[in-house]
Design a protein around this nucleic acid. Structure first.
Length: 601
RNA sequence: UGCCCGAUGGUGUAAUGGCAGCACAAACGAUUCUGACUCGUUUUGUCUAGGUUCGACUCCUAGUCGGGCAGCCA
């Protein structure tokens, strides 16, 4: 039996993307500089992942995937005061979700509890920790697992006269640093002897010194035009327990010191990060070169982070929205977090598709949200099972169908499927249609139901509106119509054309459900541009309706994608939906080219 | 009056000295038992000024505009 490619294999079948990072990797592969390409995704566990991180994940895992390499998930957990194990859990979950079915074979974990192993390379002592598959006995990498090694490298730097213990207070350190347009000046502690530095660093580690009393600094150049080369801090004192390393340490390495060494210890070949770290690159290289390490050194490359119109990505602002109660939590479906996107019904493949569309450059662009929405619809159009549902019901009585009578109709599950499945839907005397699909005084070019007019009930038959029933306030309460049963599929007049076809559900053979209709969270294209961004919150970002669904939807599984015909894509809410108390989220509407003319009319 | 980085239609990108292409968006049309999908047509672009070259989006110089860098955050 030959294995037929499945219809959903499209993302994997698409041509490999090309960009300046991939060009560099391709060059290194061609020159055989590395036995294997190793990248990494290194979040700090201090918040939830969002679409911006997704771009980085797609890049790092994509590069690994296209080169038969591996991408390590590593927690850059060097600042215990900001971090929490809760975030380790959510980040791990989100990464797995995003790469599942695409690059899970590249997801590099390490054996549980493993730390870099000692060895000898080219006659020099060395440490190395390589990846294993992300199975049951594995866990992500943690920078905090390397604290002992990183500490050793700090001692080595001191011995080489390239680092010193500085007693300047944080404020004094700031003052000595100078400014971008004028040089700093040397710390008075810069020329301590190796022995003194070693003794002082040991006292820092021993716990006898309070937070801020002193720090370990690289000895580089206080006059460098690059601020990050003005004797940057390597270690600070923090009498704080660590969520992963426990209570073992009271000194913690800073990002710049820990990151390059973590990359080295793991054998990372290409260390890809966002543009704001560009000015840190000389420091990254300085640390690794100063240590004269025996293996090939990793290199850092930078790309522009993702921005999407009508969204905010900054961790600070996201946190503000959550803590101010503007949204229900980190997984609120209106948020651009991966947890929120997943709950909303956005497929991981759509996010990967978006990443491929926006590409990788060094230009700080703002991606039109339409590109994102298009990626979501493309994915869902192929994947979503079609169902009938009415969001804002109005009752229609088909006067020529007897009470209790059922006319069985056949509906298609997904016309995009090469061999579509079908199901039965019941047409009964009373049905619901969408309020929008009837107009007593129709605007020009209105295709839908109007007094005396005809419309087709999808999968059923053409109906004619004979009578409009209203209550005392003039609100339409009921439409009395005649069904032309000869226009059903397989009947003589099946091919009779009317301009409009609308969706519907049987009144008594349908079920009720809560449906949450989401709109964009902000009303302006760049909400993050100003501090008072919450002023631009869309007051109508969430509308909750009681809808009527065709009964088969009672069996919908969490996160299963559906298209409610003519309305959009929907999925059961993974948190709140219960049998008998269904809750659906609207992922996104269908494109609606009628909305504009209708609005004008 | 510092250093680093960037700039191609409305948006995101491709062209790596040789026909400025693709996708989205927009507009119009065809098709349609989803005003969806699909298909067709159309509109719109190389920041500016010099230079090198047979030839410049691409290389050089200067400028303009935008972003980043002065946490014991990452």
């Amino acid at each position: 039996m030959s294995a037929e490619p499945t219809a959903n294999a499209a993302p994997d079948a698409s041509p490999a993307p090309s960009d300046f990072i991939r060009d560099i990797v391709a060059r290194d592969v061609a020159e055989k500089r590395h036995a294997r390409i190793v990248t990494r995704f290194p979040p700090e566990p201090n918040g939830y992942l969002h679409l911006g991180h997704a771009k980085s994940i797609c890049l790092n895992f994509g590069v690994a995937r296209e080169n038969h390499g591996v991408c390590h998930l590593r927690f850059d957990d060097t600042n215990p005061v900001k971090e929490d194990a809760e975030y380790v859990e959510s980040i791990t979950r989100d990464v797995r979700w995003l790469v599942e079915g695409w690059a899970d074979q590249c997801l590099g974990f390490k054996p549980k509890g493993a730390t870099p192993a000692a060895g000898t390379v080219n006659g020099k002592p060395d440490f190395h920790l390589s990846a294993v598959a992300a199975g049951a006995e594995a866990e992500p990498f943690f920078a905090s697992d390397y604290f002992e090694h990183i500490h050793g490298y700090a001692v080595e730097l001191i011995k080489r006269g390239k680092a010193y213990v500085c007693d300047l207070s944080p404020q004094e350190t700031d003052a000595y640093r100078g400014a971008p347009d004028h040089p700093g000046k040397d710390s008075p502690f810069r020329n301590r002897s190796v022995e003194e530095n070693l003794a002082l660093f040991a006292r820092m580690r021993s716990g006898e010194l309070p937070d801020g009393a002193c720090s370990l600094r690289a000895k580089i150049d206080m006059a460098s035009p690059n601020i990050w080369l003005r004797d940057p801090l390597l270690y600070r004192i923090r009498h704080t327990a660590h969520h992963h390393a426990g209570k073992k340490w009271c000194i913690y390495p800073l990002y710049d010191f820990a990151h390059c060494l973590s990359d080295y210890l793991e054998g990372i070949t290409h260390s890809v990060c966002t543009l704001e770290f560009e000015v840190h690159r000389p420091l990254y290289d300085w640390i690794l070169q100063s240590l004269e390490l025996p293996r090939t050194l990793p290199h850092q490359y930078e790309f522009a982070k993702l921005n999407i119109s009508y969204m905010v990505f900054s961790k600070r602002r996201l946190l503000q929205l959550v803590s101010d109660g503007a949204v229900a939590g980190w997984d609120d479906p209106r948020l651009p977090t991966l947890a929120g996107a997943r709950r909303r019904g956005i497929p991981a493949a759509a996010i990967r598709r978006l990443a491929a569309t926006v590409g990788v450059t060094k230009y700080e662009s703002v991606t039109d949200i339409a590109l994102f929405e298009h990626a979501v619809r493309e994915e869902l159009n192929a994947a979503a099972t079609r169902r009938l549902a009415v969001l804002h019901p109005v009752k229609v009585v088909l006067t020529n169908i007897a009470p209790g009578e059922t006319v069985t109709c056949r509906a298609v599950d997904n016309p995009q499927d090469p061999a579509p499945r079908t199901r039965e839907v019941a047409l009964t005397r009373e049905v619901f249609i969408e309020q929008d699909d009837f107009a007593e005084v129709p605007p020009p070019k209105y295709f839908r139901l109007k007094p005396g007019g005809e419309v087709r009930l999808k999968y059923a038959c053409i109906i004619r509106c004979d009578e409009v029933v209203k209550d005392a306030t003039g609100r339409v309460t009921e439409l009395r119509c005649t069904a032309d049963l000869a226009t059903r599929a397989g009947q003589p007049d099946a091919d009779r054309k009317v301009k409009g076809t609308i969706h519907w559900v049987s009144a008594d053979r349908s079920i009720e459900a809560e449906v949450r209709l989401y709109d964009r969270l902000f009303t302006v294209p760049e909400p993050g541009a100003t501090e008072d961004f919450q002023r631009h919150l869309n007051p109508r970002s969430l509308e909750v309706v009681r809808a009527r669904l065709e009964p088969s939807l009672a069996a919908a599984r969490a996160s299963e994608p559906f298209q409610f015909e003519r309305l959009g894509y929907f999925t059961p809410d993974a948190k709140d939906s219960r049998p008998g108390a269904l809750v659906f989220n609207r992922t996104i509407t269908l494109k609606d080219t009628w909305a504009k003319p209708a609005g004008k009319g």
